[in-house]
Amino acid sequence: MPTRYFVPFQQLRQQPTIVVDSTGLGASLTLAHWRGAATPEPLRDDTSAGAVLRALHQPGTVGLEAEAVTANHFDIDGFVGVWALLNPELALRHEHLLRLVATLGDFREIDWYAPLADHALQLVCWLNAEEKVRFYAPFGAPARRRREDEASAEKFAWLLPRFAAVLETPETGRAAWEPEYARVKRGVAAMQSAATIVRQYPKIGLTIIRTPEPLPYYTLFGATIGTDMVLCLYAGQRYEFEYKYTTWVDLESRPTLPRLPLDALTARLNQLETSIRRWTFDGITDTGPLLRLSGKSLTKVQRYADPDQRPIHASSIPPEKLEEEVVAFFRARYARIQPERYWTWAGIRAAGAEAV
């Protein structure tokens, strides 16, 4: 295999370049799970890192001979994919672990009973901590008046040569990963306690989580594997509904239902709501749209942050009634829609219009 190196995204067309977790004209090879990305069909995977690992098993893949590798943003999935291309032998040796890391980082999902779950969490927490302390939080580049595709190159430059040491010996990064790791593990204990109730509605892809307090995403979404919508019911009649990132990308492992606009559901909840607040929702093309009671508008950084790191306001609607309304809304509108793979945004909008 060639010796590869990372280049900033702006240098994409200056040499043959593999593009990871991104799209760009002139790429020698695209390895991304983004909707509509030109990833070769045999290499498609739920995560972009998974597509990279599939490519490493097929060294004759056209375009894989390129030595330069890039991405237009930094996140854990994309980082793992880039790192794997630069360290193919080590990546294949740790393939299962890296797949867990990419999935936890992007979809916030993991089976906490899996043998490597703790190791994957440590690596994710290390990447998160070093990113925030040394650079800026996800979606924070605009606040610094910088473009993500330019600013993120500094994150790759610092983290790429240091990741292998923590991958093989997590203790070397404990000072960085332990605070978030401990917070998530406390959340896991709360999720596994008698105080938490989880219900799934598989036909509409919805998970209901009823738990006393907001928790980190890595804690909450482990219970949602295989579904694409989450309604969290917290004590004090505090609620959030979210479309998961699993319906923003192209999943290879299973078909999904399309995201639907939430205008009618929001209007219905506002009919029921007697508090001073109003129900609001984000557009379906947002990476993780939220339906929640209004307060001060959340920034993209706050929407991406964990639920326990943002305000969630009390509703006048009882939790049983809210669950009933949400379930009824999706049951009615998904009744004539079949799950599919590789939805286009045009197809999603058309399905939403027909489901009204």
Rank of each mutant, 00 (worst) to 15 (best):
Q271K: 12
K185A: 09
E242Y: 09
T247A: 02
F163E: 01
M229Y: 08
Y218L: 15
R162P: 00
Q58K: 05
H94C: 09
A27T: 02
H313I: 12
L233F: 09
A305P: 03
G295H: 03
S28V: 01
T17M: 04
F156S: 03
L322R: 07
T196P: 04
A141N: 02
Y201V: 13
M191Q: 11
L290K: 12
T299K: 00
Y342H: 12
W177V: 02
T224V: 11
E131A: 12
L31H: 03
R331L: 15
T30K: 01
D286Y: 13
A335N: 04
Y181F: 15
N128A: 09
V69I: 02
A153F: 04
Y113C: 14
R254I: 04
R277H: 12
S297D: 11
R277Y: 13
G173E: 04
S294K: 02
P179V: 13
A120N: 06
Q122H: 10
R331S: 13
G63R: 00
E154H: 13
L220F: 07
G63M: 05
I225R: 13
W83C: 00
E180T: 14
F6L: 10
P339W: 02
G288Y: 06
F6Y: 15
V101S: 05
T274L: 10
R4Q: 04
T196R: 05
E320W: 10
G173W: 03
L260G: 08
Y304F: 13
Q58Y: 06
A332I: 03
R183L: 14
V249E: 02
A151Q: 08
T246R: 09
R310Y: 05
R292A: 12
V166R: 01
T280V: 15
G81V: 01
A32E: 01
A84V: 00
D118F: 12
K300G: 12
I76C: 01
G81R: 01
V124A: 04
E340M: 15
E148M: 11
E252G: 04
N72P: 00
T299R: 03
K300M: 10
V327Y: 11
T47W: 03
R93K: 14
M229H: 08
V69Y: 00
A353W: 06
A114P: 02
S275A: 08
A38L: 10
V184T: 08
P261D: 14
F281M: 10
M229S: 11
I204D: 07
G347A: 01
K132E: 13
L12G: 02
S48P: 03
K155Q: 13
R333C: 06
R238N: 11
R259Q: 12
A235M: 06
Q58D: 09
M229A: 10
V69P: 00
R349S: 11
R93N: 11
Y113P: 04
V198D: 10
R277G: 09
K300Q: 09
L90V: 09
F330W: 11
K300C: 01
A49D: 01
K244G: 10
P258E: 10
D228L: 06
V326L: 11
V7K: 04
P161H: 04
E171D: 13
V198W: 08
A141Q: 06
Y136F: 10
G81Q: 00
A351N: 07
A153S: 13
R54Y: 07
A182S: 14
L29C: 05
L98M: 02
F6V: 03
R199W: 09
R268P: 06
L53C: 03
S315I: 07
A355E: 05
